[in-house]
């Protein structure tokens, strides 16, 4: 028996919206420690890793490890039938091939259940080694989304460079070029509005902007985003999910031929 209950159903909606553009089908792996998902986009350029720890749920029961294959667009559509304040419960039998989403209104005067067929998804699980990154930038998530969107009006790729001066986002296109520099800024009143740069070595990497724009669908999950880069590794873009875990996106760089 699997039973996961979340008082803040809206959170689950945000999680699905943050993944469904990048990944169509994925396995939700549930164990006593929580729920996780790892999936690559169809071109194997980006990878999304989700963790929702069991202690972040209001009720979490998982008698047996389960890997439940789902079409993320179908789940997102289903969750749109839940109110933002609804309590959402996921239920599945150990041997069943369906999952039930139950939505309860906050006053408990409306209860809906939607049953969805599970899919058999063969997915490759990648081992992601722990790494020390040359540069880690923490900044407001809305600012990061704004920068990606603004640069995409000029070009398709972005060069992200971290130096002592700050983090520079540069692009070039047919109509011209653009540079946006963000300096470290820890003097603002609210920590979530600050930009913090931890740099061991300067680093400069090139990425396809359209993937970064997909990652920013996670902006409603967190006020801040952390971007980690090393010259010989995919970048990591992480949004923390309050008290529960994270959604991390890994993006392979563009490299010289």
């Amino acid at each position: 028996m699997l039973e996961l209950r979340l008082l803040q159903g809206g959170l689950l909606k945000k999680v699905l919206e943050a993944m469904r553009e990048l990944v169509t089908d994925a396995n939700f792996d549930c164990s006593r420690s929580g729920c996780s998902l790892q999936a690559m986009d169809s071109s194997h350029v980006a990878l999304v890793a989700l963790l929702l720890r069991s202690d972040g749920f209001d009720h979490f029961r998982c008698d047996r490890n389960r890997s439940m294959g789902m079409n993320l667009n179908h789940v997102a559509k289903l969750l749109r039938c839940a109110g933002n304040d609804d309590i959402v419960t996921l239920k599945a039998d150990d041997d069943g091939d369906t999952v039930t989403f139950m939505f309860e209104s906050p006053k408990q005067d409306k209860i809906a259940d939607f049953e969805m067929k599970l899919m058999d998804i063969q997915s490759e699980h990648l081992g992601i080694p722990e790494a020390e990154y040359q540069a880690i930038v923490k900044m407001p998530s809305q600012e990061f989304a704004r920068i990606c969107r603004d640069l995409s009006t000029i070009g398709d790729t972005v060069v992200i460079s971290v130096t002592k001066e700050g983090v520079k986002f540069s692009t070039k296109g047919d109509i011209g070029s653009a540079n946006i520099v963000c300096r470290q800024n820890t003097t603002v009143d609210k920590p979530e509005e600050s930009t913090v740069i931890e740099m061991k070595d300067p680093v400069s990497l090139t990425f396809a902007l359209r993937y970064l724009i997909s990652f920013t669908k996670a902006t409603p999950l967190s006020n801040t985003v952390t971007v980690s880069m090393s010259s010989d590794l995919p970048m990591v873009v992480e949004y923390k999910i309050a008290d529960m875990g994270y959604i991390r996106y890994y993006l392979a760089p563009k490299i010289d031929e």
């Binding site: 194997h44 350029v45 990648l126 992601i128 995919p234 993006l251 392979a252 010289d256 031929e257």
Partner: peptide, 14 residues
């Protein structure tokens, strides 16, 4: 010209 690399060339299966 820069070529797009793939995640699978950095992380191993397993």
């Amino acid at each position: 010209v820069r070529q797009q690399s793939q995640i699978t060339s950095f992380f191993s299966l397993g």
